[in-house]
Nucleic acid binder design. Structure first.
Lengths: 232, 232
DNA sequence: TGTTTGTAGATTGTCAACAATATTCTGGGG
DNA sequence: CCCCAGAATATTGTTGACAATCTACAAACA
């Protein structure tokens, strides 16, 4: 009990609700809280060492963020995203990423190339080692850094929200990334996209990112279809 | 029998926090709560006839929605959006609207043309009557219905969030729309965009919506610049 | 046997009181 | 006259308790 409190005490600068929200968000995005599962207030508040109030406030934030679904007098549940919803999210994401690479290609000088190269190298190393989760994390971070590079806060917020919901969908699909070839293909895509951006070739960058994200979309859809036939 | 039940049921379905959040959101978007002003819990809870708990929960939702800013131990304030932030939001909005008209133009049959025509006619009537606020509302609704027409829930959510933040910016700029010519120009733009969509001409629709939103962007920026020099 | 109804338990919804923090005001000193 | 320390006030942060609602189970009846 005391140990649990220290973890929260060390971060006293943030209010309790925001801490709880961050913790829950992390667990949801990591998949330790599976989509569809119920989040009961009392066990959570006991587990986190806080009262129900902050937990409820965190629920509100998570609901607005699209990570949980609240049913009055019933409870809150980790949001489940249907294949069509995921497809729609992907559609918006493509539009955003097109804007991202176009902006970056218009001014490639501002991009910290070393950071991206390091990220891509690490992704390949992880893939070689067979650590697919780490490789996937690198790939996700590559996209995120790309969006960060635009310097557009609204764009970054919007993008992250969509990606968060998509990761939710990936968990629902039980789609653990085990396919080394697709991971390597992603890294190769990323290299091509990056080079197009650095060359200032917006058209090529747009073409490549579109193909890249569309491939991810159809791949995820296929994975869910396979998982769906077996159980759901 | 059904009438009373539905009203009761609708009230029972929404929890107090969601009611409060909706009320506050309405007030913020309408401009009756001006950007930068503080929202104190006790007066609000007294005014709305509820306790502080629901109000706090509503604050969390509004914060995640980007309508208020929360400072720990200081209070919550209606969010103020800077010109650069507004510009960035507009940039994302353009990307979304491009997707919207492209999707609609790809399948114009699904669009309820009568609804849009009625909306445009009403907008012109309001402009002629000198009711600029109503005309502006019609124009906003036109865009919203366009996005609704895509049938993409994620796209609609994302779009509405951005538009909400932009309306916040308009209030900050004290930019009451009084310019009849720009309002009429917007209606004319809308007619052109709609006809391009109905003709299935995606390229023309994209070109026109881009010019249209970009015009709105620069106009809003100019209005704020003018207001900024005079007072702020 | 199947349905229904009542009851017990659990969970959420709401509230009012208490604690912690920030802001304001006031009095004294330089 | 200005500045600073310290109390007074106001506001937020958090908690525990109480009320309302839903769920699950079991007993009674057709």
């Amino acid at each position: 009990m005391t140990k649990r409190l220290t973890t929260i005490d060390l971060l006293r600068r943030h209010s309790l609700p925001s801490l709880v929200q961050g913790q829950l968000e992390e667990m949801i995005l990591a998949g330790s809280l599976t989509p569809g599962s119920q989040l009961t207030e009392i066990p959570l508040s006991l587990q986190l060492g806080v009262s129900r109030g902050p937990v409820r406030e965190a629920f509100r934030g998570l609901e607005e963020k699209g990570l949980v679904r609240v049913e009055k007098n019933r409870g809150v549940f980790v949001r489940t995203i249907s294949p069509v919803e995921a497809d729609q999210i992907y559609e918006v994401r493509v539009a955003l990423e097109l804007l991202v690479v176009a902006k970056l290609a218009a001014d490639p000088g501002r991009l910290a190339q070393a950071k991206f190269d390091a990220l891509l190298d690490k992704a390949e190393r992880m893939a070689s080692k067979g650590d697919f989760a780490a490789c996937h994390a690198c790939n996700v971070e590559f996209h995120d850094h790309l969006v960060q590079g635009t310097g557009n806060a609204a764009l970054l917020d919007t993008y992250r929200r969509l990606v968060g919901e998509l990761s939710l969908f990936r968990h629902r699909a039980h789609a653990r990334i085990r396919d080394a070839s697709s991971l390597r293909a992603s890294v190769a895509d990323h290299r091509a996209i990056l080079s197009a951006i650095l060359a200032g070739d917006a058209a090529a960058a747009r073409r490549r990112i579109r193909r890249h994200v569309e491939a991810s979309r159809s791949r995820t859809q296929r994975l869910l279809a396979a998982a769906g036939t077996s159980k759901d």
